[in-house]
Amino acid sequence: MGIIVFLFIAGAYLLGSISSAVLTCRLFGIADPRHHGSGNPGATNVYRLGGRFPAIIVLIFDMLKGVIPVWGAYFAGLPPVILGAVAISACFGHMFPVFFHFEGGKGVATAFGSVLPIGLDLGGLLIATWIVVLLVTGYSSAAALITALLAPLFTWLIKPEYTLPVSMLACLIILRHHSNITRLWNQTESKILRRRNSRNK
């Protein structure tokens, strides 16, 4: 059992270390997201730099980096705490990718993908929360933070046995967004959505 757990955790980290944002930008001839835009190699920054289609590709692949190892561990019969460790390992790979000089993203899409095996109802609640907060505030970071804060509550209501691993993931996401929290507090964070009337001023 110990060897299996190690293989899943190590495999999740290595899979997470594949930076889909950097690879997609290279494929489409877009500037390196680690050094342009917000400097974050994730779907939101790729959207800013290259538009919708490359960003969708990055979003899907980043989610799969969480879905694949956690679903595999789930079907291997590993307990919820180990599933949480596998999910965190995948997110660590995304945040600190060994293949890309440890310059990674915030891990939101990977974390979301890792909780999808818990249930589509939980996934639907998280997506709805993220969209509502994004539409209200215009900030992708605020949407990610509030969704992360509510994720343990949603999990407890749906499948309480997974509350601890989801809480671990939520804490990781919030810690990774420390610079965004500072910018939101100082009102210097850039919006990904802007109201039409503000554009016409």
Rank of each mutant, 00 (worst) to 15 (best):
P97Y: 01
I68A: 12
H94D: 12
I68Q: 06
A90L: 07
L83W: 00
M63L: 15
L78K: 14
Y74E: 11
E103M: 15
L59R: 04
M63S: 15
V81M: 12
V108A: 10
A85N: 10
A43H: 00
P97N: 08
P54T: 11
A55D: 05
F96H: 08
I88P: 06
G37C: 07
W71D: 01
V46I: 09
P80M: 14
D62C: 15
H94I: 15
K65H: 05
P41E: 07
P97F: 01
P97D: 01
A76E: 02
I57W: 12
L49Q: 06
G51H: 13
P41L: 10
S38M: 06
G107L: 02
I60R: 14
A73W: 06
N40I: 11
I68R: 09
P79K: 10
I56K: 03
A90S: 12
A73H: 06
H94P: 12
F61T: 09
H94A: 12
M95P: 03
A43Q: 02
S89D: 03
I88S: 07
G104R: 08
G37V: 09
F75R: 11
G72C: 10
Y47P: 00
S38K: 06
I60W: 13
A90H: 05
V46G: 03
V98P: 06
K106T: 11
C91E: 04
R52A: 14
G50F: 03
V81P: 00
G107V: 07
P80W: 10
N40S: 11
F53P: 00
I68E: 00
L78G: 13
H101M: 03
H94G: 14
F99Q: 13
F75Q: 09
A85W: 12
G84S: 04
F92G: 09
A76Y: 05
L59K: 02
V81G: 01
Y47H: 06
V46M: 04
A43G: 08
G42C: 10
Y47I: 03
P54D: 07
G105T: 02
G37A: 04
A73N: 05
G51F: 11
G37E: 00
R52E: 09
H94N: 14
G104W: 02
N45I: 05
D62R: 14
F99D: 05
D62F: 14
N45M: 10
V67K: 07
C91W: 09
G93R: 07
N40F: 06
V46A: 04
